[in-house]
Amino acid sequence: MVDYDYKKPKSLKEVFGLLKKYGPKATLIAGGTDVMINIRNRELSPEILISLRGLSDLCYIRKNNGYHIGALTTHRMLEQSDMVRAGLSALHDAASQVGSVQIRNVATVGGNICTAAPSADTAGPLLALDATVALEGPNGRRRVPIADFFTGPSETVRKGNEVLVEFDIPEEPGHFGSAYWKHSRRKAMDLPLLGIAVGLALSESQEISNARLGLTVAAPVPIRAYKAEEFLIGKRLGDDVLVEAGKIASSEASPRDSLRGKAWYRREMIEVFVPRMAKLAAERIRGE
């Protein structure tokens, strides 16, 4: 068993002080559902864990000139929020399918994004919802679009002395809906072998005024399917248009063969689920 010290600071200032003192010997821990397992599997052997769970003021879901979600918000809080269900449906779809109740009760959305697994469930929806990530360091705060946040598997633009503190999601003008499909073999306790998130804005005449597609496990990092989005914008919602968008999105992906699925299969499933999630987003706009 790995032996380590454990600190639970009460303020970000204290966190920055500890990070400066211990440097790479320290690991940040939020809900711990990844960190504790990595320690057990000897993939991580920190000398000290710095818990962020004492920062209770980073645990919130607010709507005020857009949506604001604190990094320590748990998946369970997102799942149980009517505001998230109604306004950020794709994120609700994702959060309520992570792990189990026990996992969702502790696992945080900030942790899910900072772990930066190619399969992170909340990453696709946050891409489709055009979220911005707020990172705070000793010298202040900076904001990064989530599309620029991931740099590789388990790698992000977050620096060692920074803490992810908040997600900001703009409120879309007009009729906006979103949906996420977690493609996995089991309903619970499984990672997606593909994740498809679609955010869609429609005019009264069913013309697509805005579209964003977030794909996970489709490339080394969660990606936007920009070409498919560009194709969709300005078109009238219809089967032919959505099928074509699925094909374009599939061509933008670079999935790999893995134990859980082959690349060709993932490509075909992108073609299937991009249209289905776009339709579900549209149904949600119409309140069906």
Binding site: Y6, K8, G32, M36, R40, S51, R53, N105
Partner: peptide
């Protein structure tokens, strides 16, 4: 009041 997996719950928490 919340169910958790105690095997990955750090005791200081």
């Amino acid at each position: 009041g919340k169910a958790v997996n105690s095997c990955i719950f750090p005791i200081p928490e």
